[in-house]
Amino acid sequence: MSDETPNRQIGGLTPRAGAHDLSRLQARNRPEPKPETSEQPKTVASPAAKPSRTPAKKSATVVVDTTARMTTYLSVATRDRARATYRATSHIEGDKSWSDFVERAILAEVERRELSHNAGERYQGDSSPLPAGRPLS
């Protein structure tokens, strides 16, 4: 037997340069989307949007609305109750997604408050930031 241990190395492909640099994937490094030049929403022909078993009308269009990301905090009990409700009823109510369910719930509360406090008229919306933290009493 030999007293020397063999020099064993694992071979393979050499790592690519910059393979571990994920900074280009971060949202802040992505280019900003170009703003819409007109106030009217985009329209997309519905036959290209989703295949259907029934023939689509040639004049039908789907209005594409812009979406925005929003972060909120809920109690765990409320979140779990809402998720359970969504899972149990989304196919009955026609919710397209969890976001659709949440948007519809918020819209129902907005319409209730507009009816109750503003004679059914819409409040003028804007995208200015809301005050952070709890309100001072």
Rank of each mutant, 00 (worst) to 15 (best):
T14Y: 11
R16L: 15
R16K: 12
A17Q: 06
A19Y: 04
A19M: 06
A19I: 02
L22M: 10
S23G: 02
S23R: 14
R24Y: 06
L25T: 14
A27S: 11
R28K: 15
N29P: 00
R30M: 15
P31S: 09
K34D: 14
E36A: 15
Q40L: 13
Q40K: 14
P41A: 07
K42R: 13
T43F: 04
V44C: 15
V44N: 14
S46G: 08
P47V: 07
P47K: 07
A48H: 03
A49N: 01
A49S: 03
P51G: 04
P51W: 03
R53D: 09
A56L: 10
A56E: 04
A56N: 09
K57E: 00
K57Y: 01
K57F: 00
K58W: 00
K58A: 12
K58S: 12
S59H: 12
A60H: 08
T61W: 00
T61M: 06
V62K: 06
V62E: 10
V64Y: 01
D65E: 13
D65I: 12
T67K: 07
T67Y: 01
A68T: 15
R69S: 10
R69A: 10
M70C: 05
T72P: 01
S75L: 05
S75M: 05
A77K: 14
T78H: 04
R81M: 09
R83M: 13
R83C: 06
R87H: 13
A88I: 01
T89N: 08
S90G: 00
I92H: 09
E93T: 07
E93P: 00
D95E: 06
S97V: 14
S97K: 11
D100N: 06
D100W: 01
F101C: 03
V102Y: 03
V102R: 03
E103R: 14
A105R: 08
A108T: 05
E109H: 09
R112W: 05
R113F: 01
L115R: 15
S116E: 15
S116D: 13
S116P: 03
H117I: 06
A119T: 05
A119I: 08
G120Y: 03
E121N: 04
R122K: 06
R122M: 04
Q124C: 09
Q124Y: 03
G125Q: 12
G125S: 13
D126R: 07
D126G: 08
